[in-house]
Design a protein around this nucleic acid. Sequence first.
RNA 1: CGGGGCGUGGCGCAGUCUGGUAGCGCACUAGCUUUGGGAGCUAGUGGUCGCCGGUUCGAGUCCGGCCGCCCCGACCA
Length: 567
Amino acid sequence: MRWSQGFLPTLRDDPADAEAASHRLLVRGGFIRQLGAGIYSVLPLGRRVLLKIERIIRQEMVGIGGQEFHLPALLPAELWKESGRWDEIGQEMFRLRDRREADLCLGMTHEEIFADLARNELRSYRELPQIWFQIQSKFRDEPRPKSGVLRTRQFTMKDSYSFDSTWEGLDRSFELHLEAYKRIFGRCGLETIAVEAWSGAMGGKESVEFQSFSEAGEDWAVTCPGCAYAANLEKAVSQVDAVEDPEDEAAPERFPTPGVHTIEELARFPGGAPAERQIKTLFYVVDGKPTLFLLRGDHDLSEVRAVDATGTANLRPGHPDEIQESLGASAGSLGAVGVDHLTVYADEALRGRRGMTTGANEDGFHLHHVDVARDLRSPHWVDLREVRRGDRCTKCGTELEVRRSIELGHIFKLGLRYSESMGVRVLNAEGQEVPVVMGSYGIGLERLMAAVVEAHHDENGICWPVSVAPWEAVVVPVKVTDDRQRSVAERLYGELQEAGVEVLLDDRDERAGVKFKDADLIGIPLRVVVGPRALAHGNVELFERAAASSSEVAIEQAASSVGEKIG
RNA sequence: CGGGGCGUGGCGCAGUCUGGUAGCGCACUAGCUUUGGGAGCUAGUGGUCGCCGGUUCGAGUCCGGCCGCCCCGACCA
């Protein structure tokens, strides 16, 4: 394509409200434009990148036996009511009514719809396994869209669903996806790790996320340098570092702590206690009922674990007035000693601890000499603690690392979650009707594009890997009004097109600096510069964007050199 | 939903405190000069100052309400 005829709206300035590099560069480079919070238009440049990502995904999905569908995004409520998710999923689902007042929603995922097709059409185990996929828009009313296209309310997802007659079959389908996903991300130029994850609203028994390390991410990946262990922070486990408590037979004793509201303040307070010798008391409202979560002072609550422990996702931190009403004190002076009118969950790390310090349920006072076993009224012992950097791996004892990451894909062993609620059954070899064992697998495409930018950019712009670059090469005549330069540039443009290279010709009558800046910004991997310096020797320059390295080749060799470099 | 910030030509911003009828840089149009890393000069185009209401002779500016967007904490591809 000729640049002068294309729509490539690059901006000279960074957009004011973009912080993440991918957001900034994709907007500035003319790949995307914002329409609303978490709603983006994809421009021609961005579309080319997404189509390349789609092609890679499609090839790999077909490679594991996947068959492509295209389901509606506008979905009747009935199927969701059947699976129970119409009520389970809260405000994240976009809901609407048609003119007959029938409930509908915009698809946020398609388990129900594929399960409906499966139950209507599949009859025998001999038709299985099946892997069905689509590449389609998803809608999720995120509480907080952010970072450009990393987290949006409408996005494109490759979602696939496997149907097997046995659990072993599900394991195979899952494994096929695991390997396909590794290839997909690798081909897009991303290093990823597969981590154990929490299944969340999808349900099912086991799930794995693919994450790419990036400071722009919103997830945390816990990895063990000593063994293969890797997990999402939500799911990660670790050994508790043991704390030696002194002999302390004394009864709990109230003591004044004026102005102390936090663990840190109490640790610094004369006569206070180090964080690991305090009991942190968190007040939550769970299914409408006030509830306490107890942790070691230096540990943090994992809300996902709290959800697991309580069996409901309906929980939130208590409001100040609720706390006051239940315990007669404000957050910062709370404790569970003597509390028997609230449900209390205690983290395993507190088991057997004594000589502890905790709030006295009276503002400005704490208790010393608390013996967990003796002074707490039969709490529910559960795992509430969030893993942190430096904790030891449960498998090999090595210190764990915790790093920011972007969740690129998530694969789930759904098991019978949908086949039982929706009646997806086939006959097995014995002629008995059995529920189909399902899996579901998703990749967010725009997020994947953004993650590639996060991983491949510098101060001048994006450095696309050739596999997903909007154009593979750009031919830049330094001065288009120069006849020699223009004719050589046209010649190379033609030769490269002939050779099947996706090539741009920057035929704009702009100064060289403008054209170089733009080419850097939009990240074309290879730039062929046609200028007087090299032409004097019958050469042109080849500039490799990512390496920022330049070399000269003879005009006659230029097209084939480009072909070699872009592989 | 809690906290913080911001809405002024396409983009980036000033002007708001202290009311007087909208300005700068970039981009865009035309001309001349220039031409290897975002050129210079000249002349132009383009804005109901987020929306509604109020105060006032007069509102971008003051008051009230609403809407939108960004960032930080609880959710997910």
